[in-house]
Amino acid sequence: MALVIRKPAIDILSAAKWMIRKDCRALSSLVEKAEEAEKRPVGRRPRFQNPALEYRHIFPEFLPDPNPKWRNSLREKMERADMLKRRSQIDIPEFYVGSVLAVTISDPHAQGKTNRFVGICIERKGCGLRAEFTLRNVVDHQGVEIRYDLYDPTIQSIQVLRLEKRLDDKLLYLRDALPEYSTFPFDMDPEILPEGTPVPVNPVQVKLKPRPWLERWERQELKGVSNIEEHLKEKDRIRRELRKTPWEKYDLMKEYRKTIPVEDQSEIWGEVHNQLNQLRLSRKKMFKKRPISTPKPQLG
């Protein structure tokens, strides 16, 4: 059985090699650029840098889906305009998977009331106006997850209570982790980072509950899980070895298909850079004004 599984792997490798050799020349310039972009440290507000490198992490939803079947330049442009309009109405802050957010929506099911939910962002996906994120929390010993559209007009405010990143891109394994790792109190105070510091990475490693699990976490090379080996049997380890795809990080075409090229990105960011910057500056002014204006009535 092992042979059967390994054979396609070898075939794929050879095919990939062939393709790399063929396409190397055409792609080389682009790939180098992309790697360069990866290597640069992305600070929170670095001053003299290409905005593309900074913005693609802060506003990932401005980049379209790389699948060429779904590209449509006109639709993308209109969506970006709509997103900027929405952003001028409401402050959509910078957040990442692993940040703790509080979302207030107006509740259509109870008249005139709002609904506030606090949770850790476990997934962020979708592009353009369809961008969405998922919050997870454990309330009264019951795990609850809510998915929100980022540009939903019923959202009244999005507040970042703790701005940080985790070791993985998706935290779906929190569903199988012990409940204390996804428990956050609803009356949490926002933690404010000093200006100019990079977004901290929280190196916490969660403990998983014993099996059965929702997914085969052992095959996903997670960094944020500490006790995955305890729950594995010999069979799982063998299968994990057989299913490994170590060649994928050398697969240039796959990388190319998954990302938007630098040339396209600079076009997009050039279009929205000015307005985003203006919005940001105006928010900053508002933020600076607020602490001065609020104590006055208290003193009076």
């Binding site: 929506i105 969405e132 019951q142 795990g143 609850v144 997850e145 809510i146 559209d149 939903d152 019923t154």
Partner: peptide, 18 residues
């Protein structure tokens, strides 16, 4: 009053079927 299944946007998804 609560399902594990994937729900619509803004409808909570629970860890158990209640």
């Amino acid at each position: 009053v609560g399902l594990k299944q994937i729900q619509n946007v803004k409808v909570p998804k629970f860890d158990s079927n209640n």
